[in-house]
């Protein structure tokens, strides 16, 4: 069966979407991803969509849902690598993926997540929480 691989990179998870998404694939991905966040205690999820030549509202919703689920599990989602033509089309379509962070590539996405993690730790320190 077709699956989308989820890789562990440091404390984060990397999902690279390379195939044309359909319903079953999305459901499987969401199942596996949430399970893995819970198992690994990852604080960040990177979704690499640089291979996608289009994002419609179905995929837009999938990304939004993944971000929402991850947030509940205390992980932040960053979408990386959206192509210019895809971005232009998405804006015209009327989707802005509100609430989802973006980065140009995986490296910059990792940078964002690291900075977020540092902030989180610093806040925890300020709050005087013992670790």
């Amino acid at each position: 069966m077709e699956r989308i691989p989820i890789l562990r990179m440091g404390g984060f998870l990397l999902v690279t979407i390379q195939v044309d998404m359909h319903d079953r694939l999305v459901t499987t991905l969401q199942d596996e991803l949430t399970t893995m966040i819970a198992q690994t205690g990852a604080h960040g999820v990177l979704i690499d969509i640089s291979s996608l030549d289009m994002v419609d509202s179905f995929i837009g919703r999938m990304i939004g849902d993944i971000a929402g689920m991850s947030r509940v599990l205390d992980a932040e989602t960053v979408v990386v690598g959206m192509r210019p033509a895809v971005a232009i089309t998405l804006v015209e379509l009327g989707l802005s993926l509100a609430g989802v962070r973006t980065a140009l590539d995986v490296e910059k996405g990792m940078g964002l997540l690291r900075a977020a993690t540092r902030r989180r730790l610093a806040e925890a320190d300020d709050g005087g929480v013992e670790r």
Binding site: R83, I88, S96
Partner: peptide, 12 residues
């Protein structure tokens, strides 16, 4: 505005 929004979607 659309340019700005599209750039933001790409991470810039």
């Amino acid at each position: 505005l659309k340019t700005v929004t599209a750039a933001r979607l790409m991470g810039a």
